[in-house]
Amino acid sequence: MEKQSTIKKLVDDLGAQDLVVVIGAADPEVASVTAETVTFGDPSFAGPLAGVSLRLPVYHILEPEVKSAIPAEIYEEQAGFLELVADTEEIGRIFREIRGRLETA
């Protein structure tokens, strides 16, 4: 909920255009819950922002397509280590699916 209100404030201040959300949790389930919360709102609980969908494109730093957008040396230094422990293909699949739903919803 708190993440959602933070983002809502940024959307109000800056406009939704050009805003993207990037997530770093290595556990695919934790990452997808976070992604769902910041885009579609918290799925399980009611609250002041229930039903408010912010619809920002959401990415994971460990997605192969995100990696390809970042200079290799910096990516290696800052995030490369997590590629050894995280299932990056699975994370990529989950996040492509969430972005796909954003476009069609």
């Binding site: 949790a25 556990d27 389930e29 819950v33 280590f81």
Partner: peptide
Amino acid sequence: GGSGNVPLANYRM
């Protein structure tokens, strides 16, 4: 609680 398995994440690292 949607927060993952913290010890497992650290052991894997």
